[in-house]
């Protein structure tokens, strides 16, 4: 599938279908034509006797600080989480700052301090970096890129291809908090909610899960841009099976639900920064869920669905009263529905 879009649009960065088209139709064939594995969040490789994982992520968010977090914290946690769901503990990180001329120094300092705090909390060392300054009006204050290297957790084999019909889908906690917090923090809507971003390192939860159910864990992903729906659609496509979701089991806070109802958005399409999805063999599902429940921050974890043979490549949600609907990937940015 060649990339045929004539220009880059915001949708290509929104994590949905257009993003996938760009990566699979342009980046992948030109940059890593020999890759056979489905595209993951991180690459695994061997260096001497060490099994390592590496990932990179760029952070652009407006406003820079929001209830529950800020870009500096996201920049560390995002990369730690990408490594965690690929089965690795982040160890070292390098970062790039793109700063806009005119950015107040105290704003920058606060963000860098937040990075330092998040790195300490996650047990990762930031070891090198680069700085560029662009003209005023060009970078929303600042952008941050972080690249992380982590050590693979032993005896954990994660791949969409190892997912089997009958496996269970676990979710670490309520969805949509981050995306809705950002939407409201932009101040363009006259809506207020008592809501904070869920940004955090998911590594402690991943480690607890692996400790209890390691051999049964088949696949993990942190549902950031594009939301839970997009991550699960990617899984459905990569494993060639169907994902059945149970609407009444998916944890969504009332404030997120309320905002979504008002704006015509689907919580399954809203970004998260501190949750992850895991597919676990059914015989391990209960111990996996118990492990999450017993770990601080995992109390609201739920079993939200299961893998089925059909309909292949599709995510299907069963509604509370027995109806069903297709849950598709996000197309472009989520746009509120008014009229």
């Amino acid at each position: 599938m060649r990339f045929r879009d004539t220009q880059i649009e915001m949708a290509h960065g929104a994590g949905g279908k257009a993003s996938r088209r760009l990566v699979e139709g342009l980046f992948a064939p030109l940059l890593f034509p020999s890759s056979e594995e489905p595209l993951g969040d991180a690459a695994h490789f061997q260096l001497g006797s060490s099994s390592l994982a590496m990932t990179t992520d760029a952070f652009v968010v407006k406003p820079l600080s929001f209830p529950g977090g800020c870009i500096g914290e996201l920049a560390v946690n995002g990369t730690v989480n990408d490594l965690a769901v690929s089965g690795a503990r982040a160890e070292t990180m390098v970062c790039t700052f793109i700063l806009e001329a005119g950015l107040a120094s105290n704003v920058l300092e606060a963000q860098v301090q937040a990075m330092a705090d998040a790195a300490r909390k996650a047990g990762v060392r930031i070891v090198a970096g680069d700085t560029k300054v662009v003209e005023h009006g060009k970078a929303d204050g600042m952008y941050i890129t972080t690249t992380g290297v982590g050590r693979l957790i032993p005896d954990l084999f994660l791949s969409a291809r190892s997912v089997r019909a009958g496996d269970k889908v676990l979710l670490s906690g309520p969805i949509g908090d981050h995306g809705i917090t950002i939407l409201l923090a932009r101040g363009e809507l006259d809506l207020e909610a008592n809501l904070t971003s869920d940004t955090r390192s998911v590594l402690p939860l991943v480690e607890a899960l692996v400790k209890q159910a390691g051999p049964g864990v088949r696949w993990m992903r942190d549902p950031t841009r594009g939301g839970t729906a997009t991550s699960l659609n990617e899984l459905a496509r990569d494993c060639g099976l169907g994902i059945a979701l149970f609407e009444d089991q998916i944890p969504v806070r009332d404030s997120v639900r309320g905002a979504c109802e008002l704006l015509g958005l689907d919580p399954l399409h809203i970004a998260n920064e501190g949750q992850f999805l895991a597919v676990v063999a059914s015989e391990y599902a209960e111990s996996a869920l118990n492990a999450l429940h017993a770990t601080p921050g995992g109390e609201e974890a739920r079993l939200i669905g299961e893998v089925r043979a059909a309909p292949a490549g599709t995510v299907l949600e069963t509604t509370r009263y027995g109806g069903s609907r297709i849950v598709d990937m996000l197309v472009g940015d989520p746009l509120p529905r008014i009229c």
């Binding site: 059909a310 309909p311 292949a312 599709t314 069903s324 609907r325 297709i326 598709d328």
Partner: peptide, 10 residues
């Protein structure tokens, strides 16, 4: 398209 067709027309 989003919610229905693949249920029947897979």
């Amino acid at each position: 398209f989003n919610y229905e067709h693949r249920k029947t027309a897979m």
